[in-house]
């Protein structure tokens, strides 16, 4: 057994998972290097506005994470990508984009997810029709406190399309991204808070409200905010001469096709394995699943373990996860790392 304070750990990815993992490792006495590809840490959280289920301002999460990595044992290095990992005896060498070879005793991969590029669903016209936006674009609008159509008008009728890039064989993503339903509910309510007289519609296939307080949020959105839910997957979107959007959908519960004109349409983009993660998987021989996320060594007892001793996973690089789950998963990764150190 070796004491943790002799140990050097590299964490790849400076989003919620990586930052939490780095913080916990440091508290346990490890010497941590956190590599972040972008120029700032924070990952996707920093692009988000309020978080479900309790409308917490995401800045609070950012502040919490910043405090976690503000530790003498942690070196945060931004603008650096991990190109590949190689085993060298019990050590793991990280080859970085800057040509360095960093030695470590263990690695936590926390490369997170990429948002599905909405333009790949051609029939929705993202990137073509001016008022088709993605859920991420809407968050930026919330952050700027200005929800406007491309022509500067305030939208009065807003639609949300669930499952964009998820549960869709056409884009080779069969899995459910798990968070977009509740995000749509949250965003729909948020829109109503910003634009009191707006009519807001969600087009869904199934309302997957499987998290703590999600169903309650769904009910509140109906009761207090009058959000209207229509069960049907939008099949196509087009634009009329006034640049309003026309959606075609079957109201499957009423059993008839439905047509609606909207001022703005929000696509609930799903989560995909990040490009960075994908590159690492290829260069380092890490296993990925059918959904292209990292495949953990065991789905029940080893969701933080890779099949390579000393390489661990944290957060949404293994499956879509919300922030709460990501933070728990990161902590669990640290517990596995400690266990590993005790046993080598």
């Amino acid at each position: 057994m070796l004491k943790a304070d002799k140990r050097e750990v590299v964490v790849i990815g400076g989003g919620a998972a990586g930052m939490e993992a780095a913080g916990q490792l440091a508290k346990a006495g490890c010497i941590v290097t956190l590599l972040e590809r972008e120029s700032v840490t924070g990952g996707h959280v920093k692009n988000w506005y309020h978080l479900f289920p309790d409308s917490r301002n995401s800045d609070e999460v950012i502040e919490y994470l910043a405090r976690q990595v503000n530790h003498d044992n942690i070196t945060v290095r931004t603008g650096v990508t991990a190109g590949s990992l190689e085993k060298n005896g019990k050590s793991i060498i990280i080859n970085t984009s800057r040509g360095e070879r960093i030695r470590s005793d263990a690695v936590i991969v926390a490369t997170g997810f990429d948002l599905f590029e909405s333009r790949r669903k051609e029939e929705y016209g993202y990137g073509i029709y001016d008022n088709v936006i993605s859920s991420a674009d809407l968050e930026m609008m919330f952050r700027k406190d200005s929800i406007k159509r491309h022509d500067g008008e305030t939208p009065r009728r807003i639609g949300f399309v669930h499952c964009v890039g998820s549960r869709d064989a056409k884009v080779n993503n069969l899995y459910c991204s798990k968070l977009c339903c509740v995000t749509a509910v949250k965003q729909a309510m948020e829109v109503k808070k910003h634009i009191g007289n707006a009519s807001v519609y969600c087009f869904y296939m199934d309302m997957r409200m499987g998290g703590a307080l999600y169903e309650e949020l769904y009910k509140e959105s109906q009761e207090k905010y009058g959000i209207i839910y229509i069960r049907g997957k939008v099949s196509e979107v087009s634009e009329n001469i006034d640049t309003r959007l026309i959606v075609k959908v079957e109201d499957t519960l009423a059993g008839r096709p439905l047509r609606m004109e909207l001022d703005m349409l929000v696509l609930m983009a799903g989560m995909e394995m990040s490009e960075g993660g994908m590159g690492l998987a290829e260069s380092s021989g890490l296993k990925t699943g059918e959904n292209r996320f990292f495949a953990p060594a065991d789905h029940h007892f080893g969701t933080n373990k890779s099949t390579v001793a000393g390489i661990f996973y944290a957060g949404a690089c293994t499956a879509p996860m919300n922030i709460t789950e990501t933070i728990s998963h990161a902590r669990a990764a640290v517990a596995d790392v400690m266990d590993y150190f005790r046993n080598i």
Partner: peptide
């Protein structure tokens, strides 16, 4: 309508 988006698809 953004022509750029269409060009990308083409």
């Amino acid at each position: 309508m953004k022509l750029e988006g269409k060009k990308r698809i083409w």
